[in-house]
């Protein structure tokens, strides 16, 4: 587009697209008759215009539809349901809340469960070698709370966040 402006190109393209009014076409034709650069540019754009106009729709393979339907039939039935994850998380939150209440009340501090393995009926001579110990309820509650929190994060990631982001990425909205 050597000496021609973008405006001229727009006019030429509008002419090719059939977007000019009758009076604009008359003016355009008179401009065209007096300008060989404009005529040359019109030819350049016309080649592009007519080539693109002659495009046709492409057809996929004959079994395209069958393959799509076959793939669909193999899809897992379960679909993304954030509520399922929310309910599980709610359950974990309640359990953690109860655990924290027990801890903060101090009622678990003084409790301990003695475990004497020798009291079990175990055949053979190993019975006398088994130890006796006690489990402090505070330590047990702490461990359960820790495990609960870890499970909650896992569920949040696997059941809610990942499917959510995957579904957003798939549609790219």
């Amino acid at each position: 587009m050597d000496n021609l402006s973008t405006t001229s190109d727009d006019k030429l393209l509008d002419f090719l697209d059939g977007n000019l009014t009758q009076s604009e076409i008359e003016t355009f034709k008179s401009d065209l008759a007096n300008s060989s650069p404009l005529q040359r540019r019109l030819e350049e754009l016309r080649i592009i215009h007519e080539s693109l106009q002659s495009q046709k729709l492409e057809s996929p393979s004959a079994n395209f539809t069958e393959r799509v339907l076959r793939n669909i039939s193999q899809l897992p039935v379960a679909s993304f349901n954030p509520w399922r994850g929310v309910f599980i998380l709610l359950g974990i939150a309640i359990a953690t809340g109860l655990g924290l209440y027990v801890l903060s009340s101090g009622s678990a501090d003084s409790l301990s469960v003695p475990i004497n393995l020798q009291s079990f009926e175990i055949p053979g001579g190993i019975k006398n070698t088994l130890p006796s110990f006690s489990i402090n309820m505070r330590t047990l509650t702490n461990t359960i709370l820790f495990a609960n929190t870890a499970i909650a994060f896992l569920i949040l990631d696997r059941i809610i966040l990942r499917p959510l982001f995957r579904s957003r990425n798939a549609l790219n909205y």
């Binding site: 587009m1 727009d10 393209l13 540019r41 592009i48 693109l52």
Partner: peptide, 12 residues
Amino acid sequence: HRARQRLADELK
């Protein structure tokens, strides 16, 4: 519009 202009220029 611009893509067609550019196509013509590239073709040239």
